[in-house]
């Protein structure tokens, strides 16, 4: 599926960022082409979650250097909602709960907002109901979850499945999964991973931020990057992840 002639979706060049005056990212370089799956691994505190938040535009992080091009646009100039409109999606490690707003109403609001920005048609509640029921099958989600309030009272696994359902609805060009595997039991992990695999096409790409190799048993990465101290210190293929699993992170050096 990968070929060097595939279109470049994301180009990160020498990206540096800080939070509350502390430098976290110290010169990240990363190229993601259409059809690719990139895994970003690394010990706690290496900056991998920060990278995903900076790409999605979290306001608490300050970009101190470098640039990020996304399909020809300077991503760093856009507020987070416009990054979403452009096709960037972040699956949260800790999705928030919105009591009082049903999952289907929220998904429809997000869907119609994006449709308006992308020049597509709005769906009314009935049309959306059909659409969302079809999409829920991707993450094997019971339709009753659509009537429940967004993430309220959801288990960890249900919240993560709901994130992938949102990804299915918003149809991003670049999906960033921030520790989507954390807190999942083996069944939930399989369902979430299958969902992501079903959504992969030759026109989109996935960046998976993860601490553990086990997610990569289900979603095969084309590239594995190891982060440490705010930099990508090693890039390899799937074999690198297996090696990290047996040997840990300590042996990897820039």
């Amino acid at each position: 599926m990968i070929s060097s002639s595939s279109k470049v979706i994301l180009e990160v060049r020498n990206l540096s960022a800080s939070v509350a005056g502390v430098d976290i990212l110290k010169g990240i370089n990363l190229t993601v082409r259409a059809g690719e799956v990139h895994a970003i691994m690394g010990p706690n505190g290496s900056g991998k979650s920060t990278l995903s938040k900076v790409l999605a535009g979290h306001p608490s992080y300050t970009v101190t250097g470098g640039d990020v091009m996304f399909q020809g646009k300077n991503l760093l100039e856009l507020p987070p909602e416009e990054r979403a409109h452009a096709g960037v999606f972040l699956a949260f490690q800790y999705p928030i709960e919105i009591p009082g707003v049903s999952n289907s109403a929220f998904l429809r609001l997000a869907y119609n907002t994006l449709q308006a920005r992308r020049g597509g048609e709005d769906l009314d509640p009935l049309e959306f109901n059909d659409y969302i029921r079809e999409k829920s099958k991707i993450v094997e989600m019971d339709p009753s979850f659509l009537d429940r309030n967004v993430n309220e009272g959801f288990s960890g696994g249900e919240k993560k499945r709901n994130e992938i359902l949102q990804m299915a609805v918003l149809d991003p060009t670049l999906a960033i999964l921030d520790e989507t595997d954390s807190g999942l039991d083996i069944d939930a992990l399989r369902i979430v991973a299958n969902g992501v695999n079903k959504l992969m096409t030759t026109n989109n790409a996935v960046i998976m931020v993860t601490h553990y190799q086990r997610l990569l048993n289900y979603i095969a990465p084309d590239f594995v990057h190891v982060m440490r101290g705010g930099q990508i210190i090693k890039t390899g293929d799937k074999a690198l992840a297996l090696e990290l699993e047996t040997r840990g992170y300590d042996w990897v050096h820039a």
Binding site: G57, P80, F92, I96, L114
Partner: peptide
């Protein structure tokens, strides 16, 4: 919470 909703395009 704001960031979560913004990241969904709102």
């Amino acid at each position: 919470e704001m960031f979560y909703l913004n990241s969904r395009g709102l």
